[in-house]
Computed example of a mutant assay.
Amino acid sequence: MKISNAYINNFSTISCAGNSNEELFSSICQKKNKISLDTNYVKDSVVAIGKIDSKTLFDDLVFQVCDNILEESNLKDFSNTLLVIGSSVGGMIKTEQIFFQDKTYENINYKEHPIDAVAYKLKQKYTFYDDISFSTACTSSANALGYAKEVIEKGIYKNVLVIGLDSLSYTTVCGFHALSVLSSKPCTPFERNREGMNVSEAIAALLVQNEKSSNESIEICGVGYSSDAHHMTQPQPEGLGANKAMSLAIENANIKKEDISYINAHGTGTYANDFSELNAISSLFSDCMPYVSSTKSITGHTLGAAGALEAAICCMAINKQIIPPSKDIKDLENEIIKISNEVINKDIKYVLSNSFAFGGNNVSLVFGCAK
């Protein structure tokens, strides 16, 4: 039984595309190149990565986005708020730093390594009612948002703080390099001649509540989950799992697929992921194609943070009535798809955001204007 709706009332983001919400959306709309070339992470290789432009420590940036939420919300503190973390690396960066410095694992604090290390750190500064952490690779914070929607709607919590975050780590960058999916230049999702993906870092915090707080509140209308379990690292080529997740999200939102104005695609820039997603979108929306773009062409792939970061982008797209563009697509692989290469001003009511991960774990979210 649905007791209440779930509304995103405030959000705060930091990424390579900007240290604020407005800077992030402006970078996307202006198609600014925020990806840098790096030779430090992979030996004898140049890889393009998305690094946050700040001298502040990553942990302190996490505190900063939480402080921003408190300052702009109707909360005095987080004592009656559930903390939901979505991350694929957790405290791995801290572990790497200690190991590279000491050449041993002996000085590593075991509480600062796992996925819930983020929650552990936050609880040193803030008081939360409870916390839970999700680690499902690139769908981590999308799953966290879906969970927030469910517990809000069931009346279990009134306030949920969802934080999606991942910092750049050698383990992650070198891991993707081993899979031969990294690009040596800014990624170009859905471009026929794309080279690969850009690993990036980001933090995105969203306050989800059972009542809307302003005219800019955005409702989490629907969530769809699927698992195609086709391959450990590659999606089902025809996009069957992605199609299922999108269909379920639209059904859960109690709308029609024709109501979707814009799809924020997973769009990583790798051949396997893009090919699968393009097939899924073209088959599901063959008779009512909405505009599609991948904002990862500006932000890079922020891994566990992607679902939350792109949820914030979707919120701004709805509030500004702007469809954000993709960047540098000259030869679209699938001509059925309606790619937005430039900023498009449009009446937007509902948007769909896709997050797909290793193991065929798929999450789609529908966002809409708060009623």
Rank of each mutant, 00 (worst) to 15 (best):
Asn33Glu: 12
Lys320Pro: 04
Tyr170Pro: 12
Glu106Ile: 14
Lys76Cys: 10
Ser227Met: 14
Ile115Gly: 04
Gln209Arg: 11
Ile298Gly: 05
Ala137Ser: 14
Ala245Thr: 05
Gly304Met: 04
Leu179Val: 09
Asn273Gln: 05
Lys330Asp: 13
Tyr147Leu: 12
Ala272Asp: 08
Asn143Gln: 12
Ile156Pro: 07
Gly155Asn: 10
Gly90Val: 03
Met1Cys: 10
Glu150Phe: 14
Ala272Pro: 04
Asp166Phe: 09
Leu75Ala: 05
Gln101Ile: 04
Ile52Gln: 02
Phe356Arg: 00
Val363Tyr: 01
Ala205Glu: 04
Val343Glu: 14
Leu179Arg: 10
Asp130Leu: 03
Val343Ser: 10
Lys158Phe: 05
Val223Lys: 13
Gly164Trp: 12
Ala202Met: 08
Asn5Ser: 14
Lys371Ile: 08
Ile93Val: 12
Ser282Glu: 14
Phe176Lys: 07
Glu216Thr: 11
Leu82Val: 05
Leu332Glu: 10
Glu216Gln: 14
Ala370Lys: 01
Asn362Cys: 03
Gly18His: 07
Ile323Arg: 00
Ala142Lys: 06
Asp38Cys: 06
Ser54Pro: 09
Tyr291Met: 01
Tyr291Asp: 03
Cys66Thr: 05
Leu161Cys: 09
His266Thr: 02
His231Cys: 10
Leu207Trp: 10
Val118Phe: 11
Asp130Lys: 12
Thr270His: 02
Lys51Gln: 12
Glu23Cys: 06
Lys256Met: 02
Ala311Arg: 08
Glu22Cys: 02
Ser293Leu: 02
Asn80Val: 01
Ser4Asp: 11
Ile98Lys: 10
Tyr157Arg: 00
Tyr41Asn: 02
Phe356Tyr: 14
Cys29Gly: 06
Glu96Thr: 02
Phe176Thr: 05
Asn334Pro: 00
Arg192Phe: 09
Ile8Gln: 13
Thr39Ile: 09
Thr104Val: 08
Asn319Ile: 02
Arg194Gly: 05
Asn68Pro: 12
Lys244Thr: 11
Ile298Arg: 01
Ile218His: 10
Leu278His: 11
Thr233Pro: 11
Glu201Arg: 03
Met92Asn: 15
Asn193Arg: 14
Pro290Lys: 11
Val292Pro: 05
Lys320His: 13
Asp130Gln: 09
Phe275Thr: 08
Val46Met: 11
Asn33Tyr: 04
Cys315Ala: 13
Ile298Leu: 07
Met246Gly: 07
Ile250His: 00
Val351Thr: 14
Val181His: 10
Ser73His: 03
Asp274Val: 00
Asn215Ala: 12
Asp38Gln: 06
Ser45Asn: 15
Asn252His: 14
Asp131Leu: 05
Glu238Thr: 13
Phe367Pro: 02
Ser15Phe: 07
Ser180Phe: 13
Leu365Lys: 08
Cys288Thr: 11
Ser214Lys: 08
Gly90Trp: 02
Leu122His: 12
Asn198Asp: 13
Asp67Thr: 07
Val89Glu: 14
Ile85Glu: 02
Ser141Phe: 03
Lys123Ser: 15
Asp67Gln: 11
Lys244His: 10
Asn210Ile: 05
Glu333Ser: 06
Gln124Pro: 05
Met232Glu: 07
Ile93His: 15
Asn198Pro: 13
Ser20Pro: 11
Glu23Asp: 15
Asp328Cys: 03
Ser133Ile: 03
Val343Asn: 04
Glu277Thr: 01
Ser247Ile: 00
Ser326Asn: 09
Val199Asp: 03
Ile322Lys: 06
Thr56Ser: 12
Gly86Asn: 09
Phe285Lys: 01
Gly368His: 08
Ala306Met: 08
Val46Pro: 00
Cys66Lys: 04
